[in-house]
Each structure stands twice: as structure tokens, then as C-alpha cells.
Design a protein around this nucleic acid. Structure first.
Lengths: 329, 329
DNA sequence: GTGAAAGCGCTAACAA
DNA sequence: TTGTTAGCGCTTTCAC
């Protein structure tokens, strides 16, 4: 029995007589044989790896652990059932982004990029990937006018719903605490806020937009000034672009005796674990992170299976407002 | 210039004339050449991968996201600086644990195992690895009498400190809410609790040990009964074997008007993000998860570099009590 | 339906 | 110090 036949049987390709097939399988079992993946991949010129590029989270920063593990689980589950292994590629702060090399060295067949920002370093690296025709997909970040594969949630709609919800609760002066504009999430969320106000016949006031950096601390830092705005009747509600800032703000205001769900209404974004832990519990926009991850993986790996040149995809998954006590009046 | 010389230069091995070296490097830069990692690894018969085996967390269960991402970051950072890539291997519930095949197929050179339990399926898989001499390391789980490489935190000491702290606060009737005994963490924490009581001349009462499963829900489920114990003076403090159970219990008791840090003292374990979010904030035992991960990776990869047969290691990192309002009386 | 043989791009032993 | 060459274990064309 030849090497080639064994290969055919084990890979289920080509014509094989049933009898032969049986004998090979039996022998394999007998000998406890498993094919050497390294050799296999080398011969096929396919790494069998899906790369996941993400910032190293030293003691948790911009990225919340919730966001991170949900997305990763979604990717992992899908990759596994598509026969791909997951290669984690941590990118550290000052480091050059040699994403294209991952493909040139054949470490990955495709990759998913988390935490990309709209800055030249990131943009250039993506542009290089695109030019060389490497399959990749962004999660939670889009680049205007660029046809990069992207899977995102509908953050614009999330903010829109948050404003609508607050107005239904009777709020009139709704503020917005945003994250940095290098993340398209921030822009989308702000846009939804603006649209909802205008749809309700109110005017969008840029002075009511505060700047944070998605950390709890940056939310906390706005507490003092915002307390004053509430006391003087200039604000009765605020939407924070993520839960961490919302929670920081909530805690800071509480220390000043200003209570969410009573003295003002508060809405966060992400519906992370933490939203259920605060007092009062935090109203938030639930984002299907697990699905974002699995959708990105399945779409991307899908393109690898096709023969025709793949068409770029842009997926936007729906979000959902989860009302809790922090947004009551 | 021959293939071999180029290989020598690029890998920095063997004698090479400086002039040659320079010319090769220059040409490589010129041609934008990067070595094919797949071929390299195949020729070397080394995958260059550190495997991380962990349970798939479908919507977050036993594993907290905090625990997960801290450990993973620690592993990732170290692996990266040792020149290894991280291969994530998600294990799904019913699935057979064919860990040894990862080595036979040469997908990994070594692996770190998270979330192992003291049950036959897990034990058998580890025993197989050990017999075949594959390098692996357990995180946060030990098997009595087995010389498996392990990196853990000193959970026994953590509970010991928690009890001591509560007694200093004047607590007399301290209960313990434990996790399942299939995790050595649970046993260690219970042991520390027992030892601290006895060291203080008090008797260990097994009836004061409640059973949970590390979920918030399981903490919440004990609230009703525990409220009664507090009211009747049978309990004035409780230690939960992780923060999630502590938080569930805290929330359940709060709904019944029984306040942590006032009506009873509460201590959790892990010092996760959530400990800072509850009201009152949760006193907890901080575990250096990031360091646990990086220590595991560096020890394990260290053994690969040695020539002599490696000596098994067992590392126990210190924990630290972080006092917050929940443990006041 | 099966076998023979070339080759995937490197490394490493050996020769020069 | 450098070149030659034989693999590494599989897949895949091409004969038969």
C-alpha cells in the first residue's frame, strides 16, 4: 500500500476502493497514527491558522476584559468548527505593525484585527494588506471610503435608542460622554445621539459632548463638573459611550451625593458584566460581541473557501437597549 | 552565494565572514525577503507554538472574563518575548481531551492548561501527556501526589488572611461559601479557612461551609438562608471563594435589607474588576493572575531550552488582601 | 483505483 | 569560512 493511497484515504480525496479505504483506516487505528500537521501544512502551503491581532492588555486598559473574551470566544468557536487553529498575535505599544509579514511567512491564512485605530500607523498596515490581497477583517472599526472587510455593531442606532429612551423617561437636557475619535465607534455613537435629538426636533449642541478615553477614570474625572450641571438644571441625563466611563461617572457623582436613576438618568454602552453590579444597576446598550466575533470568523474563512475573487463584506449587527434603574427619573 | 550561507546568516549560527553577512542582509532587505516560517518549522521539526488549552466560555460561566484575560495576557507577553507564537485551543464540553495529539501532530512544542478539574477525563489526559514526556504546565490546579508542572497562587494563605482580617474586625461567626471540590483552589481555600480558625483557638464547624459553583447565581441562591442566619445571630461574616459568588450573595442580601459592611462582613476572592463596582465595594483577596500566566509560560518555555531532562516545578505566588467597605462591621 | 516520484522551502551534517 | 546535498513527512501530478 503506497504513501499516496494512505494520503488519499485520510483526506477523503480521489477515488479509493472501499476495501482499501477500510484497510487503511484500520491500520491507522492500529498504529495509533496521526498525520503530522506541520508537514501537511507545509506540503499544502497553508498554515491552517486564523490569526487574531490584538493589543496586549497590560492590566486592562481601553479594552474591557468582557469585550475581549466575548469576541475571542466567538472567533474561537467558529474557527474551530471550520478546522482552523487560532493564532494569537499580541501587538505591543511602540511596535511596528508588520501585519503583511504574517502572510509572507505563512504564519496565517487570514487574520482578524481587533482594536485598530484611525491613525496612520494602523491605516498604512491595513493598506499594505489590502494591496497584497491578503484576507483580513476588522472588528469594531471601519475606515471611511475603504472597502475593508468589517464586522461591527450598529452603534449609531444604539445611541439613537438611548436618547429616545431617555426622552421617554422625560429627560430634556441629555449630554453625551464620548470616547476618542480614532475609534469609529465613537463617531457612530455620537452620530446616533445627534440624529435622535434632531429627529425629536431638538437641536444638537456640541457643548453637551464631553471627551473621555473609555476608561473608568475618565468617567470619574467628569463627575465634579457634571454634578454642577445637574444642580444648576443644565443637565438631567447623560449617555456614556461605554460602561466603564458610565460606571466611573456614576461612582464619582454618588460620592457627591448625586444619584443616578434619581437626580439624573444615565445610560452606558456595551452591557458588560459590570452593568449589573453597580448601584443602581446601569442601563446599557447590549452589543452582541460573541456574535461579532463568530460572524467575522465565518465570513472571513468563507472567503478562503471560495474560488472566485471574494466580494468585500461589511456587517452591522443590531444592538439592544437594556433598561435598568440608572435611567429612571 | 549558497542557500546554506543565507540560512546561517539569517539564523545567526555557524561561522560567517562579516563581509558575507553584510551582503546577505543587504540582499534580503533589497528583495524584501522573509523566511517561510512554515518551511522553517517543518525542517526544524519544531512548531514554534505554545498551546493554551482552555474551556470555551459560552457567555461566560465558571471562568470569569477577568481571570481569563489577565492570565492570557501574561502568557502572551512572555511567549512573545521568547519567540513563541500562542495557539489557542478551545475545549468544548462533551469533547474528548486529546491533548497528546497536539504534540504528535506537532501543533505545539509545549502547552499550558487552564481550567483543568480533578476528574477522570482530565486526569487521564494529563497522565498520558506525562507518560509520553510532553512538556506541559497546569495553571491554578494541582493534582495531589502528581509531579505535574504547576503555577498557582497561594489560595490557602488567602483564606487564612481573610479569616484573620475578619476576626480583627471583631467577627466571631465566620462562614465560608466554597466552590466545587474538583478545583484544587476550592480545597486550598477551605483549608486556609480551617487553619486560621484553629490557629485562633476556635473550632472548625463543617456546617458553616456552604456549597456554590463559582457563579454569581449560586451566591445569590444562598442569600435567603444566610439572611436568616444573620438575623438569628448565627453568622456575622462570610468568605466566598470567588468574587462572583460574593457579589451574588451581596446583591441577594441587599434585596432583603441586609447590608454588607454593616449587618455582616463579606470577603471575596480574586479582586476582580467587579469588586470595585459593588455597593459597598468588596473586600477581596487579590491574585496576581497576570504573573501566574507569565510565570507559567517562562518556566515551561525555559524547560524547552534546557538540554538536561527538566526538573518538575511547582510555583505558588503570594496573594494579598485588599480591604474595602464590605468587611467592616 | 493505485503507485512512483517530484517537490513544498528550509536546516544541518558533511565535504571542501 | 563556504558549498553540496540529503532529508523533514506530507500532497499531488502523472503514469499505469
Amino acid at each position: 500500500m503506497s504513501e499516496a493511497t494512505v494520503s488519499r484515504v485520510l483526506n477523503g480525496v480521489g477515488p479509493v476502493k472501499e476495501e482499501t479505504r477500510r484497510r487503511v483506516m484500520e491500520a491507522a487505528k492500529q498504529l495509533n497514527y496521526v498525520p503530522n500537521a506541520l508537514a501537511q501544512r507545509f506540503a499544502r502551503q497553508k498554515s491552517g491558522n486564523l490569526g487574531v491581532i490584538l493589543p496586549l492588555l497590560p492590566k486592562v486598559n481601553v479594552f474591557s476584559t468582557y469585550y475581549f473574551s466575548e469576541i475571542l470566544s466567538g472567533i474561537g468557536h467558529t474557527a474551530k468548527h471550520s478546522g482552523y487553529d487560532l493564532l494569537m498575535l499580541f501587538r505591543e505599544p511602540g511596535e511596528p505593525r508588520e501585519y503583511a509579514n504574517l502572510f509572507r511567512t505563512q504564519k496565517v491564512d487570514a487574520c482578524i484585527i481587533l482594536g485598530a485605530q484611525n491613525i496612520p500607523t494602523d491605516y498604512d498596515a491595513l493598506e499594505e494588506l489590502q494591496l497584497e490581497g491578503h484576507p483580513f477583517c476588522l472588528i469594531n472599526q471601519r475606515f471611511d471610503g475603504k472597502p475593508y472587510n468589517t464586522v461591527d455593531a450598529d452603534h449609531r442606532m444604539g445611541s439613537f435608542d438611548a436618547v429616545t429612551h431617555l426622552m421617554q423617561q422625560g429627560c430634556q437636557r441629555i449630554w453625551f460622554l464620548n470616547g476618542p475619535p480614532v475609534f469609529s465607534n465613537s463617531l457612530d455613537r455620537l452620530e446616533g445621539y445627534r440624529q435622535a435629538l434632531e429627529a425629536a426636533g431638538m437641536t444638537f449642541d456640541p457643548d453637551r459632548v464631553l471627551a473621555g478615553n473609555y476608561s473608568r477614570k475618565s468617567g470619574y474625572a467628569h463627575a465634579e463638573a457634571f454634578a454642577e450641571l445637574i444642580r444648576t438644571g443644565q443637565a438631567d441625563a447623560i449617555i456614556a459611550a461605554n460602561d466603564r466611563m458610565a460606571i466611573g461617572l456614576l461612582q464619582g457623582l454618588k460620592e457627591k451625593g448625586v444619584r443616578a436613576g434619581a437626580d439624573y438618568a444615565l445610560v452606558g454602552c456595551d452591557d458588560s458584566d459590570g452593568a449589573r453590579l453597580t448601584d443602581p444597576p446601569l442601563t446599557s446598550i447590549a452589543v452582541p460581541f460573541y456574535e461579532v466575533g463568530s460572524e467575522a470568523a465565518s465570513r472571513l474563512l468563507g472567503t478562503l473557501a471560495e474560488t472566485e475573487p471574494p466580494v468585500p463584506f461589511t456587517v452591522k449587527l443590531p444592538v439592544r437597549l437594556v433598561a435598568r434603574a440608572s435611567s429612571e427619573v
